[in-house]
Design a protein around this nucleic acid. Structure first.
Length: 467
RNA sequence: GCGCCGGUAGCUCAAUUGGCAGAGCAUUUGACUCUUAAUCAACAGGUUCCGGGUUCAAGUCCCGGCCGGCGCACCA
């Protein structure tokens, strides 16, 4: 069956509801409009038919009268899910529903499959994630969450541009996976007969652009990590990474809190909102507490990166954490922080002064060379961002990479590898620079009030069906 | 990867102790000139996720597999 190749429409449901709010019950406006959308409900009553149509803006009723609407019989037999284009007068029915009184209409596409229960929608996760198109049609919350994500990304971009950052793109196919601590996906480049890795972070490329003289750069892009899936992890996810020359990590914390709070304002109109039934505050300024401080507080002990390793190990073992032989005091402190503090960090907060041992790309803290000028922000018990003053000393960077390589040799398959090109870039001179990474999916979860990361990803990674 | 839970009509869900596999919505047919998840009547709709096993008898019990949810691990 041939369907139309186009339909010229001049009105949207939501705007019509607004514009014609003055119409009284049974009143006709005399104005004709052309609307298009999808039939989501249909009620026939003899020589009348009422359809609820949804377009991208909202919903409006279509009112068809036998003898007035062309092809009335066919109209009354439309299927739920069919796309239609309708021309007719804007009226309000006797029972008070704003409607387009159908004069002429066309079916733009036919829905051959059912789109879920018109009351209960679609509940089956497998079906919802594998056929998001049906989920979007059937479930309001899915539409809302993905819409909010889109608004969030837009807000992030606009705020970065407004702050003088230049948007750039860096390679996804990488000969060496680096810039983060994670296992990569491997692929093969036939023409070069070489294995390549999907990037685990764009970090080093972006800093090379700063070396080259682009003083403020950012990238919103997909990164890939070959790890387990969970309600908070998708193997491909979206990161905002941003670098500013001449800033240190404190400047970057200020920028981060303004950015995140600003995004919440743009999308939700507030920085105080409910997340999963509990009030959450992103209002600035955020608390800034050091990792050692928070951990000491939680455990009632005076702990730091200088606490004897044996003491930290003992505390970890008491909490059921398996301690690896390669962990130094820095790693132990970080692990201790994670188990004892993380679950209680609810309102937005910066955790600062990370051990150098777990921060191979961060600049050492001037007051303590075992610490770095690094922060992570937390909200709703989850890590939201990671930032630091960038290590710009090529000699120190090489020794950090070498330490990582030792860990790799000792069996840590997530340890960083030596990136000679990056060291050479540093030898050309990286000005004092601060960097930031924000997990956009995690932020979207907060903004959309979703507990599962898949709800804010249009097409989450699923195992392919076999059998 | 490990543990717990789940998978029944297109969708949402029932099915007692192991005893004829059901309802609502959607689809099809009919009635109805102001409906709002319209209503009413009727028809049709099944590899109970897949493969084995136990049993007179399996949606239900056992074993294996597939997919998903949650937790753990890994991480952001």
């Amino acid at each position: 069956m041939t369907t139309p190749y186009k339909f010229a429409h001049d009105a949207f449901a939501a705007a019509l509801q607004q514009t014609y709010s003055f119409l009284t019950d049974g009143e006709e406006s005399g104005q004709s409009v052309r609307v298009a959308g999808r039939i989501i409900l249909l009620r026939r009553q003899g020589k009348l038919a009422f359809a609820t149509m949804r377009d991208s803006s909202g919903e409006i009723q279509l009112f068809a009268l036998n003898g007035v609407a062309e092809n009335f019989e066919e109209f009354s037999k439309l299927h739920l899910g069919d796309w239609v284009g309708v021309a007719g007068e804007v009226v309000r029915t006797k029972r008070g529903e704003l409607s387009v009184k159908v004069a002429s209409w066309e079916r733009l596409a036919e829905a051959l499959h059912n789109f879920g229960d018109k009351w209960a929608g679609i509940a089956d996760f497998d079906l919802r994630y594998r056929h998001r198109e049906a989920d979007l049609w059937a479930n309001e919350t899915t539409r809302r969450s993905l819409q909010r994500r889109s608004e969030m990304v837009r807000s992030v971009r606009e705020r970065c541009w407004a702050a003088g950052f230049m948007e750039v793109e860096t390679p996804i196919l990488n000969a060496i996976p680096t810039g983060a601590v994670a296992r990569p996906f491997v692929t093969h480049f036939n023409a070069l007969d070489s294995d390549f890795y999907l990037r685990i972070a764009p970090e080093l490329w972006l800093k090379r652009l700063v070396v080259g003289g682009f003083e403020r750069v950012f990238e919103v892009g997909r990164v890939f990590r070959n790890e387990g899936v969970s309600p908070r992890h998708n193997p491909e996810f979206t990161m905002l990474e941003l670098y500013a020359a001449y800033w240190n990590y404190e400047d970057m914390m200020s920028f981060t809190e303004e950015l995140v709070a600003g995004v919440a304002m743009d999308v939700l109109g507030t920085t105080e909102f409910e997340y999963q039934g509990r009030q959450l505050s992103l209002t600035t300024p955020w608390a800034r507490r050091s990792m050692a401080e928070l951990t000491s507080e939680a455990l009632g002990d005076d702990l730091s990166v200088h606490t004897p390793r044996a003491v930290l190990v003992e505390l970890l073992l008491e909490r059921g954490v398996e301690v690896h032989a390669s962990w130094g005091p820095g790693r132990c402190l970080a692990e201790l922080f994670e188990v004892s503090c993380e679950p209680s960090l609810w309102d937005a907060i910066f955790v600062t002064e990370y051990p150098v041992e777990v921060s191979p790309l961060s600049r050492r803290h001037p007051r303590d060379p075992e610490l770095t000028e690094r922060f992570e922000s937390y909200a709703a018990t989850r890590e939201l961002s990671n930032g630091f003053s960038e290590l710009n000393d090529p000699v120190d960077q090489r020794s950090r990479f070498e330490e990582q390589a030792r860990l790799g040799a000792a069996g840590d398959d997530e340890a960083m590898r030596i990136d000679e090109d990056y060291i050479k870039a540093l030898e050309w001179g990286l000005p004092p620079t601060a960097g930031l990474g924000v997990g956009m999916d995690r932020l979207a979860m907060l903004i959309a009030d979703e507990a599962n990361i898949r709800e804010v990803i249009a097409f989450p990674t699923l195992k392919p069906l076999r059998d």
